[in-house]
Every structure is written in structure tokens, then in C-alpha cells.
Design a protein around this nucleic acid. Structure first.
Lengths: 120, 120
DNA sequence: CCTATAATTCAATAACTCTTGAATAATTGG
DNA sequence: CCAATTATTCAAGAGTTATTGAATTATAGG
């Protein structure tokens, strides 16, 4: 992740419809969702509008697409999201981990719903 | 962190000068930097331009300010950054931690420069 | 092959954002 | 109190971005 990519990613995430799409696809995982299904989830937004935002997100590297029959399936690009987070917080501690550990805890909690659960 | 706040934060981060300011302040920590010093670090940008971007960042909740003599000192709002990351990645695993653990690892690494080092 | 379905592309318009330079406000030292 | 320093506010103009509706492309089924 470099500055240019990060700027593109943040710009993509700064639009309401696109942020909702990414958050929806983050919960959907690698399986993804068809463009039409995403449009329905976005208050039935016009398909041209969906295409605009989906291609914007793909251009930014935050989602990936594949064709399945007549549908195009979109899914979140988790490694890109991880890279973005890392880029933003790089060198946040300067030897003082307590300064940025809240961010680590916030993110870790997303993967550890049960106390003392799986650790990868 | 709600959707509105997240949109504001991402919009703030999607501008080159502002992203650089945040990354600079993230490395500076709670100590922060005076507005003028930040301006110098940004290729000597005009002060009105700095004020515009700094107040944009403060409005978005990503930085905080305090007066010290004639200077206004800006510092990163680490908890807000942590909240933003958590909001973006919320419910990313759905019981499958391996899906989002790269993001956790990326962020954790920022706080653990030395292998087996401090764990807070 | 023809129709229906699923999605993208395009052009025009409306809305928003950034930069610049000049003016203003707050603080300190002499 | 006056001048210098530090920073913010404001208005205008240039550039960028999102929405809409119509036209186009790709695939599947009868």
C-alpha cells in the first residue's frame, strides 16, 4: 500500500453508498454478492448508480468481481483493507505500544467474539 | 463511531495533504506539533491552506488541538482512528477469523517492532 | 434465434471541495 | 501600548464527483 493507493481507497470509502457496500461485503466474506443483490440492499438504487460505485470500489482495489452466469459477483478485498489500516497506523507507537493498542484491541475484537477464543 | 462520523473521517483522509498530516501526527504521538511546524513539513504550504485542512481534520474528529502560547498544537486522536478501523471491519469474520486476521496482524505489527516484545 | 435478465457505459447537469490572497484575531515581548 | 509572530476566516474561481435516464453489451432459456 502506497500513498496514492491509500488516497484512492479513502476517497472510495468516503461516499455513503460505497461505504455501505464495503461494510456489507465485509460481512459477506469471500462468497460475495451479485451486483443486483447489492443494489437491492441499497434501497433499490438504480443499476447505473450501482455500476458507478462498484467500479469505483474495484478501481480502488477494495472489492473484487467475478462473473457467474448473468450475474457479476462482488466480494471484499480483505488484504487491501488490512493494508490500508496498516498504512494509516504505521509507526504509531515509536516504542510506546500503549499509545496505539486501543486500535489493535478494536480490530482484534472483531475476530474474537468469545473471550479466550480462537487465536490465529 | 457511527456511519456519519466514519464518512466524515474517510473524506478527511482522502485528501493528500490531510492524509500526510494525520500520518505525521500519528508518529508524533500525544505530544503533537504546532500548526506552523506541520505547514513546514507539508512543503511549506500556505497557512490558510493549513488552517483549512487542520480544521477539517478536527471537525472529523481525527485530530485534537490545544493552545500553547502563540502556537496551536495539533495531535492525532488515536481512539478515533481505532474506532474508525473497528467500524470498517465490524463483523468481518462471521465465525471465520482466518478471513480478517491479516488485518489484525498488519495493525498488531505496528505495535510490536521486536519479536516477542511487549504485549499490553 | 428471440426474448428476458443482469449489468455496464455514456452525456448532461447539479453539487461539492480545494486553493489563493487579503483581511482579521490572539498572544507575547519590548 | 505597539510591533511582531502565529494562526484563522472569508470570498471567488477552478476543478472534481455523483446522479439520472437512455442506450448498449453479455448471458441464459425456450
Amino acid at each position: 500500500m502506497n500513498e496514492k493507493q491509500a488516497l484512492g481507497a479513502f476517497a472510495a470509502l468516503s461516499q455513503e453508498t460505497r461505504l455501505r457496500i464495503v461494510r456489507l461485503l465485509v460481512t459477506t466474506g469471500p462468497q460475495g454478492l451479485a451486483a443486483g443483490a447489492i443494489g437491492e440492499a441499497m434501497d433499490g438504487a438504480a443499476s447505473s448508480r450501482m455500476s458507478f460505485h462498484l467500479s469505483h470500489l474495484e478501481q480502488a482495489g477494495l472489492v473484487e468481481s467475478r462473473r457467474e452466469g448473468r450475474s457479476i459477483i462482488y466480494s471484499a478485498a480483505l488484504p487491501a483493507l488490512a493494508g490500508l489500516v496498516e498504512f494509516l497506523m504505521r509507526d504509531c507507537c515509536q516504542g510506546h505500544p500503549e499509545v496505539c493498542s486501543p486500535a489493535v484491541a478494536a480490530l482484534s475484537s472483531c475476530c474474537e467474539p468469545a473471550k479466550g477464543a480462537v487465536h490465529v
